[in-house]
């Protein structure tokens, strides 16, 4: 157990470290002169000013010195200033973060509820019309572009029927984006849950449980669901990181003020400090979620807990 945990924490730290290298290098991979590109849109920037910015960003230093400077700034919580508007990057991101987390969490709950129930039921009824029907539904859910689903929902329920607001910050504006993101991922979860549960149903120990004369409900709940839930939980963790990724697109459809919307704006404006900050924050989020899921996994599975 202790070895398992230290290993996981080690992996998490490694991920963050590799990300800092990648993010610090980002500005150098860009084809052309990053300073030129960043300020190309601003009027009347003189070559002297560009040179000054270059010095300020440390671009004239050797690459490892730049990396050192970058890390020491990050550790102190200084993610730099945005190019447009000169706002502190970290404050801006932290301010938007709760919106994204809220959207992803609510969507995960929707996706997990729908997906696990559909998947479990399809596995239990495998080979029947119920199974086929559920899986066709799931497949259609998986095949639809979620930004398209989002737009359709938006126009039907917000524009035409006017049941819900088109954009905003309250819970009513959360309904449509959460459903969009949730439904799109419920299909994936349903398919994975089904195959995981079918794996369990084919295990020898389920045959043993039947041979013992247990009630069908007991077998399904105590033996199949309990054992089958362990891979599903791991999968939900992974799914949450996918939701964070999907949130970037959905936020743009619904004008939901999360970090995803900020990120797309940053890309259009080539606001590199903001892009760097976004990737770092995203990395920390992903790593934290995976760590929590690994912990949960260890708690659920005695084979890990007691090793």
């Amino acid at each position: 157990m202790f070895r398992y945990l230290t290993h996981r924490i080690g992996t998490a730290l490694l991920t963050v470290w590799i990300t800092t290298i990648a993010v610090a290098m980002l500005i150098h991979i860009v084809p052309g002169d990053p300073v030129q590109i960043m300020y190309a849109q601003s009027q009347g920037t003189t070559p002297e000013q560009l040179e000054e910015i270059r010095t300020r960003l440390g671009l004239n230093e050797p690459i490892w010195v730049q990396y050192g400077m970058f890390v020491s700034r990050i550790v102190q919580g200084d993610f730099g200033q945005t190019i447009r508007g000169n706002q502190p990057v970290l404050d801006l991101l932290i301010g938007r973060l709760p919106n994204t987390l809220l959207l992803a969490s609510v969507s995960l709950v929707i996706a997990a509820l729908v997906g696990v129930v559909f998947g479990f039921f399809a596995a239990y009824k495998r080979g029947t019309a119920v199974d086929t029907g559920l899986m066709i539904t799931a497949l259609i859910g998986v095949s639809m572009p979620h930004f398209w689903l989002g737009l359709i929902l938006l126009f039907v329920f917000a524009v035409n029927l006017a049941w819900l607001p088109v954009a905003g910050e309250d819970w009513r504006s959360l309904v449509l984006p959460a459903i969009t993101l949730g439904v799109a991922n419920a299909g994936i979860i349903a398919r994975l849950t089904r195959s995981s549960m079918i794996d369990i149903l084919n295990q020898d120990f389920v045959r043993t449980a039947r041979a013992k004369g247990l009630h069908k409900g007991t077998i399904l709940y105590r033996h199949v669901l309990m054992a089958g839930l362990i891979p599903v939980v791991t999968m939900l963790g992974l799914q949450f990181t996918y939701m964070l990724g999907g949130a970037i697109v959905v936020e743009n459809v619904f004008a939901w003020n999360g970090i995803g919307r900020l990120a797309i704006q940053a890309i259009f404006q080539r606001d590199y400090p903001l892009i760097q900050g976004f990737i770092l924050i995203f990395a920390c989020l992903v790593v934290t979620v995976s760590l929590i899921m690994d912990l949960l996994y260890a708690v659920l599975d005695p084979r890990v807990r007691l090793s």
Partner: peptide, 9 residues
């Protein structure tokens, strides 16, 4: 590490 960032990002 790359995988953990999801395709979109």
């Amino acid at each position: 590490v790359v995988f953990s960032f999801t395709e979109t990002l």
